[in-house]
Structures are given as structure tokens and as C-alpha cells.
Amino acid sequence: MSETTAVRVDPSNERMLKAWNGDEGALWAKRAQRFNDGVAAYRDVFFSAADIQAGDRVLDVGCGAGQTTRDAAQFATEGSALGVDLSGEMLGLARRLADEERVPNVSFEQVDAQVHAFPEAGLDVVISRHGSMFFGSPLAAFSNLARATRPGGRLVLLTWQPLRLNEWITTFRTIFAAGREVPSVNLALSDPAETEGLLTSAGYADVRCTAVNKPMYFGQDVEDAADFIVEQHGGRLSDLDDATRAKAVETLRADLAEHQTDRGVFYGSAAWLVEARRP
């Protein structure tokens, strides 16, 4: 586990640093392939919008274990791809995978994209697959990214639509509440009007949010999916008695069985494909 003191972050991101450079990041590193498989259906539409050219300099914000960064580098054959994240453990995995896959034009840095001094106008494309929703101060973050994007450069994000449109989130939140009240929460960047206003204020233009709905993969069968989901969300049951915890897990398995297909266990998901340009 990495030392949090080694990473300079904006005070508003201290909580995110503690989580992603700690237990949360360790879990995501351990399950990196499953998390990538989960949203794999979004890959083509995401990179089609990014339209990365051979000589482009690409920044991947919240890159995690680096799958999207390595994919970007494969498009930017004469350019480069830099992945940044707060998780030292995930970045370590990202570097190992890049070496194993022999991707020479990719690099990774453990920095807070909200405050990091990227070279001014030094980027052609900024991308983020579900990694741009965790900034303590989104306006400060996107202003910093806009400063680093060259005139005419592009920003492409994948963010979640509201909770009610994401079957997987609402289902698992309800099951792991185990009869208790399900806390209300608003997903960052889930409102197109707010996102457009935010990115315009930050210095981007021509903001467009396109609804994209894809099936999300959770495992090859019920037990495989249950192991993954309980590992990720089971902590929400820790304060309950054994019988209540067991009932919640059985409820989960029953719901997973209803979503079993011949290709695995899938739930509906809904994302926004956000595109913008630096004027």
C-alpha cells in the first residue's frame, strides 16, 4: 500500500486519496480485469468519440489499472498516453501490464489531476472512463485540465446517468441495505445541463452529452458474480447479525439468477458520453 504523504492533493481530495490509495484501490487492483470486463461494452463508443490520432498526446484521468491508457497508446502510435490516478497500487499494476504487453509509449503518474501542473496546452486529448466523477472541486479540476488542453483539443468522458436509470446500482444498493433505508445519493456529472455548465465555465466549448445504454457484466455465473459483488459491497452488511447478512446474500443470488444469460450475468447500465472541445 502506498504512503499517502507522497502525493500532493487538493485538501478537498484528501478523502479520495485515503480511499483510492488504500483499501478501495487495493480491491480495484485485485479485481482489475473484472472491473474492465464489466464496462467493456462501452469501449468502442468511447474511443470512437475520442478519435485519437497517431501523433496525439493523450491524458487519461483516473486511469486505475491503466486499461484505457494502454488502449489510447495503441491509437497514438507516434504520440503518447499518460495515465494519472491517486492509487499507487493500481498504478503499479498498470505499469506491470504495460511492460508485459510491450506498450512503449505509455506512462503513469500518481498525481491529483485537480492540482497537478500539466504542461500548458500540452495535450491533444483528455479522456476519462468513469474516473472524472470524484473531484472535490470539479470546477477547479476541469479548469486545470482545460488549461492543459491545446486549442482545438478534445475532452471525452464516460460518466453515469442518474441512479434510477442504472439497474445494477439501484439493485445492489437496495439488497445491501437489507431492509434499512437506502441512502439518497447524487452521482457527479449525471445531469447533462449541470455538466455542460461546469465544462463551459472551466474553459471548454461545444459540450455534448449523449445517452449510451449498455449491458454491464458481473460474472460468468451466479456464484462467480456473487463472490465479486459481495467482496465489493459486503462491508455494508458488517453491522448486521449473521441471519440478516445471510438473507441479503441469498437475495442477491436470487436476483443474479434472474440476470443469468448464456454469456454470463448482466445488468442494465446507463452512461453519458460527454464530449467537449478547447476553443
Rank of each mutant, 00 (worst) to 15 (best):
V45G: 14
V45N: 15
V45M: 15
V45Q: 15
V45C: 15
F46M: 11
F46I: 08
F46C: 10
F46K: 01
F46E: 11
F47Y: 08
F47I: 08
F47R: 03
F47N: 07
F47E: 11
S48D: 15
S48E: 15
S48K: 15
S48L: 14
S48P: 14
A49C: 03
A49P: 02
A49E: 03
A49G: 00
A49Q: 01
A50R: 04
A50H: 06
A50D: 08
A50T: 05
A50N: 06
D51A: 15
D51H: 13
D51C: 10
D51M: 10
I52G: 09
I52Y: 07
Q53E: 07
Q53Y: 01
Q53I: 01
Q53R: 09
A54M: 03
A54P: 03
A54L: 02
G55I: 04
G55V: 02
G55M: 02
D56F: 07
D56Q: 11
D56C: 11
D56V: 04
R57Y: 10
R57S: 13
R57N: 10
V58W: 15
L59K: 08
L59N: 10
L59Y: 11
D60H: 01
D60T: 03
D60Y: 09
D60E: 11
D60L: 01
V61L: 06
V61Y: 10
V61P: 08
V61N: 11
V61G: 12
G62R: 04
G62C: 09
C63W: 12
C63M: 14
C63Y: 13
G64N: 12
G64S: 12
G64Y: 10
A65D: 09
A65S: 14
A65F: 13
G66R: 13
G66P: 14
Q67G: 01
Q67K: 06
Q67N: 02
T68P: 08
T68F: 07
T68E: 12
T68K: 06
T68I: 03
T69G: 07
T69F: 08
T69C: 13
R70V: 10
R70K: 12
R70N: 08
R70M: 11
A72R: 11
A72Q: 14
A72M: 12
A73Q: 06
A73G: 13
A73H: 05
Q74K: 09
Q74R: 12
F75M: 07
F75D: 09
A76E: 10
A76V: 09
A76P: 11
T77F: 07
T77P: 05
T77V: 12
T77C: 04
E78I: 05
E78W: 06
G79K: 01
G79H: 02
S80M: 01
S80C: 07
S80F: 04
S80D: 04
A81F: 00
L82W: 02
G83W: 06
G83I: 09
G83F: 04
V84F: 05
D85V: 04
D85M: 02
D85G: 06
L86Y: 02
L86P: 01
L86I: 03
S87C: 00
S87H: 02
S87A: 02
G88I: 04
G88P: 00
G88F: 01
G88L: 05
E89Q: 10
E89K: 11
M90R: 13
M90F: 11
L91W: 12
L91G: 06
L91C: 07
L91Q: 04
G92R: 14
G92K: 14
G92Q: 14
G92N: 14
L93C: 03
L93R: 10
L93Q: 09
L93I: 03
R95F: 14
